[in-house]
Design a protein around this nucleic acid. Structure first.
Lengths: 197, 197
DNA sequence: CACATTAATGGCACACGGTGCCATGGGGAA
DNA sequence: TTCCCCATGGCACCGTGTGCCATTAATGTG
C-alpha cells in the first residue's frame, strides 16, 4: 500500500536544514567562509560529512538555505494568482512573501545576506540563483502577456525586479533599523509603472 | 647591473597563454567544459599540470584569457583620456577597443563567448569578472563627475554599460554575419543620452 | 670554457570539495 | 518477530588548487 508523502517512515532524520545552516553561519562569521571546511561544519552539527552533502548540494548552497524550494513555491503562487489581479500586484505581493523573514529571525537573515553579498565565492554562485529567480519572474510575465519567456519584454522585467530587490537588500543591510519589507515595497513600487496595466 | 623588464633571461617560457587557451577551447568544444580535466589540457598543451596553473589561476579563468590584464589596460586608457573629450565618447571608444577581436580571430572569440555565456560554472565565475569591469567604468565616471566611486550615479552607469554590452554580445552570437564592433557601437550609442554632456 | 645568476619547469605531497557505493541503524507496519 | 523503508555514516575515489623543491635552460662574467 502506498503512503502519503511526509508521513513518518523509515529512520527519522537526525537534523534539519535550519540546524545545519545555523551552525554553519556561526562558523562562517567566526572563521570566514573559505577557512571553514565542510568537515568543520559537519562536526559542529553532529553529523557526518556525507550526510551534510545530502542536505546541501554544496558548501556554497548552505547560506542560500532552501532558496530553490522557495522558488518553486514562488512560481506556484504566481501561477495560481487570480487572473483579475493586476500583474504588478501579483508580482509585488508574491515577491514580498518570498522575502518574508524566515524562521531564524531577522538577525540570522542579515548574517546570511551579508555573507552572500560580501564573499566572492558566494557572489559567483549567487549569479546562478539570481538567474533562476529572474527566470521565474520572466515566465510569469510571459504567460500573463502572452509572449515568449525569452521575449525581451519579459526578460527585462526579470532583471528590473531583481535589480530593485537587490537594491532594497543593500539599503536594508546598511541600516540596522530598516525594515526589509518596507524597503522591498518601496523598491518594487518604483517599477509599478513599468509593469503596465 | 639591473636589467630592463622584458629582456630575455633565465629559462625561456615553453608555451603561451594563447596556446593553452586554444588547445583548451578545442577540448571544451569536443568534450564539454566539465568533462575536460586540467590534466587533459596540460597533456594536450605539452606542459605539466603545475605549469598550467602558473599561466591560469584556475580552470574557470582559461576561457577569460587575459581579461584581467586587459582590464588594467582599459583603466589606464580611461585615465589618460584627454579631459576635453566628452565622457561618453571616451567610454565608448575605450570599450570598443577593449572588445576588439583578439589575436585568435573571430571564430575563436565566438567559441570563447559561447562557452562563457552557456556554461553554468563559467556563468558563476563570470559574475566576478563583470563586477571588476563595472568597477573600472564606475571609477572612471566617478573621477570625471567628481563623485564617489560607490555613488549610485557611477554604479548605475557601470551596470548600464555592462548590460548593453552583454546584449550586444548576445546579438552578435545569434547572428553569424553580425559584426561585434557594430553591435557594441549601436548598443553603447543607446546610452549616450544617459552619459550626459 | 667554467661558473654564477635568473627564471621557468615539472614532480610530489597535501588540503578540500564533491560523488558513488554499501553496510548499518532505527523507525513503523503486518 | 519479521519485513520494509529510508536516513545515516564510512570509505574509496576523482578533480581542483597550492606549497615546496629540485631541475633545466637560458644569459652574463671571469
Amino acid at each position: 500500500m502506498r503512503h502519503e508523502r511526509g508521513e513518518m517512515f523509515g529512520r527519522p532524520r537526525s537534523t534539519t536544514h535550519d540546524s545545519i545552516e545555523s551552525v554553519a553561519l556561526d562558523l562562517f562569521d567566526r572563521n570566514g567562509f573559505e577557512q571553514t571546511t565542510v568537515d568543520d561544519i559537519a562536526t559542529a552539527a553532529g553529523i557526518s560529512r556525507r550526510t551534510m552533502f545530502r542536505y546541501f548540494a554544496s558548501k556554497n548552497d548552505i547560506p542560500w538555505g532552501r532558496f530553490s524550494e522557495g522558488l518553486v513555491e514562488l512560481a506556484r503562487r504566481l501561477e495560481e494568482a487570480p487572473h483579475d489581479e493586476p500583474l504588478w500586484r501579483a508580482l509585488h505581493d508574491a515577491i514580498l512573501d518570498f522575502n518574508a523573514l524566515p524562521e531564524g529571525g531577522e538577525e540570522q537573515h542579515r548574517r546570511r545576506m551579508r555573507l552572500l553579498l560580501g564573499t566572492p565565492a558566494l557572489q559567483a554562485h549567487s549569479a546562478l540563483m539570481y538567474a533562476e529567480w529572474r527566470g521565474v519572474v520572466a515566465r510569469f510575465v510571459a504567460v500573463r502577456r502572452g509572449i515568449a519567456p525569452d521575449d525581451v519584454r519579459a526578460v527585462v522585467l526579470g532583471h528590473a525586479a531583481l535589480g530593485v530587490s537587490l537594491a532594497a537588500y543593500e539599503t536594508w543591510l546598511a541600516h540596522d533599523d530598516a525594515d526589509l519589507g518596507e524597503q522591498l515595497d518601496t523598491a518594487l513600487g518604483a517599477l509599478r509603472d513599468h509593469f503596465g496595466e
